[in-house]
Amino acid sequence: MKQKVVVFSQLDQDILQRLQQQYHVVMINPKLGDINAQLLEQVKDADAMIGAGRLLNASNLATAQQLKIISSVSVGYDNYDMAYLNQKKIWLSNTPHVLTETTADLAFSLMLSAARKVPVLDQWTKQGNWQRTVGMMQFGQDIFSKNLGIIGLGNIGAAIARRGFYGFNMNILYHNRREKLELAQPLNARYCALDELLQQSDFVVLAVDLNAESKALMGQHEFDQMQSHAVFVNIARGSVVDEQALIATLKAGKIFAAGLDVYAKEPLQESELFALENVVTLPHVGSATAETRKKMAELAYRNLVDALEGRTPAYVLNPSFS
């Protein structure tokens, strides 16, 4: 009898076909009604799960009897109740590294778009407002040779720093739980306390993991430290930011602009942010290129197959269930 795999989100078609050739595959379908009810029914005899973007915990995994692995097609794993998975001895794997450069590209896209008012000017031009030479209302901010402050110098943060240093001659400041000399020295990056970074940076990019220490890391006090011409970019997680404090800061014009790819609630369909011209809003597309999503799906597939064939996956997050 084939082992059973539950697919709980959209998945690359090539990977799905490979899974269907090897295993008994069941797909969770929102059109069939309550998702949690479907999960509780399907995980009873499931050996593995694969997907992303779904909260998985005791409420929808309680019936699982033989589940070996949840293979997440993502880097972040805040959607999963790790304590519960450890208790049930279920591996959780993720897909790090393959999306680093793509997400760093997006961070710079947000920086450039927010600093140069790209979305606003795009609409302004299409609406027929370009009738004479542009004036102060259309002016943006320079990026070249400015101070770039990065909060979280992990793989993605370091990739953003490289783009700033080599591509835009930027001065790199960073704040992290610990100094990272091996990453910082080639870029002449300077380690700073958080307030110092905020006070001295022209651009602030948030690239931290979501954890107990980083939740609501950027609140009103932190936004008040930023310069009035500064641009704030978040490609980390929405919960790292006090969203209402950010909205108040943008409304008051206390910073120049913000570029956001993540939010406290996702998907985001209504928000005060949408009415503000000094914010660029994207729908959590940090890794959303065809090439990168293919690589992520491939890595998630390998993690799943390793677990089902008795091997420890390369990127399992809880190998000892501790």
Rank of each mutant, 00 (worst) to 15 (best):
H229P: 03
S113C: 08
D12P: 06
L260S: 08
T102A: 14
S113G: 11
V75A: 14
P319G: 01
L197K: 07
Y263W: 08
S214N: 09
H229R: 08
L197F: 12
I151N: 03
S113V: 05
T102E: 13
A48M: 09
Q21I: 10
L112I: 15
P30F: 04
A236I: 05
G128D: 06
L148F: 04
A307M: 09
Y166G: 02
K295R: 14
A52H: 11
M82P: 09
A158I: 13
T292M: 01
A115S: 14
M82F: 15
P186L: 04
Q244D: 06
E222D: 04
K31N: 12
S113Y: 04
R177S: 13
Y315I: 02
L16F: 10
D209M: 05
A264P: 08
H229K: 09
A115V: 09
H175R: 10
S93W: 10
Q185F: 12
I69S: 04
V285F: 09
L85T: 04
L173E: 05
G259C: 05
P283A: 06
M111G: 12
A212Y: 09
K4M: 06
V7E: 00
F8G: 05
A193Y: 02
G152Y: 07
L210V: 02
H97C: 09
K146R: 15
F144Q: 14
A37D: 11
S201W: 07
L304G: 00
R177T: 14
S320G: 02
G149N: 03
F321N: 00
G219W: 00
R132N: 10
A257S: 09
A236F: 03
A252C: 04
T63E: 02
R54I: 15
F274R: 00
D105N: 02
N86I: 13
L40P: 05
Q87C: 12
K126Y: 11
A114C: 09
N234H: 05
N36E: 14
V231M: 03
V98L: 01
A245Y: 01
L187K: 05
W124D: 02
A46W: 00
A193R: 03
K2Y: 09
Q131C: 11
Q42A: 14
S71W: 08
D209Q: 08
A83T: 15
Q138T: 15
F256S: 06
K126P: 10
Q138A: 15
A297I: 02
G154V: 06
E270A: 15
V7Q: 01
A216K: 12
